[in-house]
């Protein structure tokens, strides 16, 4: 009897510790970012940092303007969203509402498999196959562009968008659909008018989480977007994203230098952006539950 109580309380504490660990880790990461990144702003104004056009971190005097990097991340992310969201949501509808059971199983595991492909492999495939193709197809100077990056990243966002949207669509109560169908609505009308609005918060959350994945992606974008730190004029221009900048330059910096702190400051900006996106996604997910 006594030993059962002891085991019980030990297990309880273990679970509690695991639950707290995640939050603790996130706050530790955040404080570490703050500690390393905030010092940057005592020597470089936030305004010049956010709105500066030039990123020449190793020149003297160095320029740490990340507007072109923010624009780069924005172009790639928006491009990927424009491709992945409609395709992903339609795929989710097909899987949960239209496909026969056998097809559904194959599709679902296939899409989940897509999530398992490492991003460096996606980047490499894109570099070898997509980049030359994009250059010839659109007759642009180089295929290393935001567009190529968007296309490859759309593949990476798709699994998240499809599987979470599919859950949301499936959790729409049967009674809604039965009521619609019994009133004479066609299958398409039911999907479009009844299921879509009912599942909308969940689908929005799926989209936000997919976008969160895209904006934080590093390896694939570094390999195929060209990494030119200039403000892009079109989706077919080469861009440099914030993540690729951190990854490409962190190895060279001397600990504690301005460049080092500047990269952490970029990390801080990224953290804030992904935090906002996740927060929005969470709000929508909560609304689904109610």
């Amino acid at each position: 009897m006594f030993s059962r109580k002891v085991t019980d309380s030990i297990i309880e504490k273990l679970i509690f510790a695991s639950g707290i660990a995640a939050i603790l880790l996130v706050s530790l990461i955040f404080f570490f970012l703050l500690r390393e990144g905030l010092g940057f702003f005592s020597e470089y104004s936030i305004k010049d940092f956010i709105t500066g056009h030039f990123w020449y971190p190793t020149s003297k005097p160095a320029a740490f303007g990340i507007l072109s990097l923010i624009m780069g991340s924005l172009f790639v992310t928006l491009g990927a969203a424009v491709i992945a969201v409609p395709v992903g949501v339609m795929a989710a509808f097909y899987i949960s509402e239209v496909a026969p059971v056998s097809v559904r199983d194959v599709l679902k595991s296939g899409i989940e498999l897509l999530a398992a492909i490492p991003s460096v492999v996606i980047g490499f495939i894109g570099m070898v196959t997509l980049v030359p193709l994009v250059r010839v197809m659109f007759d642009i100077p180089t295929g290393l562009s935001a567009f190529s990056g968007s296309l490859m990243l759309a593949f990476m966002a798709m699994p998240t968008i499809v599987s979470i949207s599919e859950d949301a669509i499936r959790s729409v109560p049967w009674t809604y659909k039965e009521a619609a169908l019994s009133l004479g609505a066609t299958k398409w009308q039911t999907m479009y008018r009844i299921v879509l609005p009912a599942a909308a918060p969940g689908i929005l959350a799926a989209v936000m989480l997919g976008i969160g994945r895209v904006i934080g992606e590093t390896m694939a974008v570094m390999m195929i977007t060209g990494n030119a730190a200039a403000i892009p004029e079109s989706i077919f221009d080469p861009v440099r994203t914030m993540t690729a900048t951190i990854a490409a330059e962190m190895g060279e910096t001397v600990k504690g230098s301005m460049h080092y702190k500047g990269l952490f400051a970029i990390g801080l900006v990224l953290f804030v952006i992904t935090f906002i996106i996740n927060f929005i996604a969470d709000t929508f997910l909560n609304r689904v539950k109610k």
Binding site: S59, S68, P132, P141, T142, L144, G226, A228, A230, A248
Partner: peptide, 28 residues
């Protein structure tokens, strides 16, 4: 001198990456 590379220059991660792009792109 404070002259810089054009910001439009593509920054490649290795010399091999430069070689790869040039071997398939006549504009580079």
């Amino acid at each position: 001198s404070k002259d810089e590379f054009s910001p439009k220059a593509l920054l490649m991660s290795s010399s091999q990456a430069i070689v790869n792009e040039i071997s398939q792109n006549p504009n580079a």
